[in-house]
């Protein structure tokens, strides 16, 4: 039972990180209709910037988080403006390939800007251990689960009530009609990239808090992929919940079957989901079987 609870908590914690990154995928897919294969790399860059800020400055938690959010916003905006916007109107194949190219560039840039060694992001919080019901839980793990739940609520309210949120949903549903209603599609796209970068970046910073920064961190994006497939590529909230489920699956598979299974569990899940419910648990049922 002790072991089960331990797996449950750590599964939820890593699942919350996957969930945040998966929400990043979904935000971009929902408003621009393309899968951003560079999501994991963007996450990694934001986490590295946060680490640089924490080591050069005083390491104040407020300063670091503000700097990380600012960095994430500008990263998203720059990528959208420089790389993605010129591809507007090109076939999906080409735009998706561009994100793949971008992913490779960002991934290898880590080794030139920073270095190939692992680093711990230490801003004085997140590594303390709290005892809950007989098992030790890191404060960082509690914080990331809480953050995911808070963001889920905030994003739900944003899409439901704010004018910008409704505009984003309109562009996602039918960009031409949205354009005729006076919504600027490019602004919505820019906003989506910035938001996606921030949400995923938060996940990356939390990952760096609980674990370590390393150039292999982009694999978080690959791990979060099953989450967004499970939750539904166009379901932002669903992707967050999908992340929790994938984290749990992975941890239980690793804990009870074997450590090799931990790596594959998520990917095996993708194939099962695509066979049974290709639009995901919470996605819209508009899969075309031509």
């Amino acid at each position: 039972m002790q072991y089960f609870l331990q797996l449950l908590i750590s599964g939820l914690a890593i699942g919350a990180i996957y969930g945040l990154i998966a929400m990043g995928f979904a935000v971009i897919y929902k408003s621009t209709g393309l899968v951003n294969f560079a999501q994991g790399e963007m996450t990694m860059i934001v986490a590295y910037i946060a680490w640089t800020v924490s080591t050069t400055g005083s390491g104040n938690i407020l300063v670091v988080s503000l700097a990380a959010i600012l960095a994430a916003v500008s990263l998203g905006l720059v990528i959208e403006r420089v790389v993605m916007r010129p591809m507007l109107g090109e076939p999906v194949f080409a735009t998706v390939m561009v994100t793949i190219g971008l992913a490779v560039i960002l991934r290898s840039s880590i080794n030139f800007i920073w270095d190939a060694y692992p680093h711990g992001l230490d801003i004085g919080v997140g590594r303390g251990i709290v005892r809950v019901g007989g098992i030790g839980v890191r404060t960082g793990q509690i914080a990331v689960i809480a953050t995911l739940l808070l963001l889920l609520a905030a994003i739900w309210a944003f899409f439901r009530y704010s004018k910008t949120g409704v505009a984003m949903r309109a562009v996602a549903a039918d960009d031409r009609t949205a354009l005729l209603m006076g919504i600027s599609a490019t602004r919505v796209h820019a906003l989506a990239w910035a938001a996606s970068s921030v949400i995923a970046g938060i996940g990356g910073v939390f990952f760096a808090l609980s674990y370590d920064l390393s150039p292999a961190m982009f694999q978080l994006g690959l791990k979060a992929f099953p989450a967004t497939i499970l939750g539904g590529l166009d379901a932002v909230l669903g992707s967050g919940i999908g992340g929790l489920l994938i984290g749990l699956t992975e941890n239980f598979a690793g804990g009870y079957i074997g450590s090799g299974m931990k790596e594959v569990a998520g990917f095996a899940m993708i194939i099962v989901v695509l066979m049974i419910r290709p639009f995901g648990l919470f996605g819209e049922r508009d899969i075309e079987r031509v």
């Binding site: 790389v83 561009v98 190219g101 971008l102 992913a103 560039i105 290898s108």
Partner: peptide, 12 residues
């Protein structure tokens, strides 16, 4: 990898 990424983006 950077070269491959750049070449992909520039050609597209």
């Amino acid at each position: 990898s950077m070269l491959y990424g750049l070449v992909i983006i520039l050609f597209l």
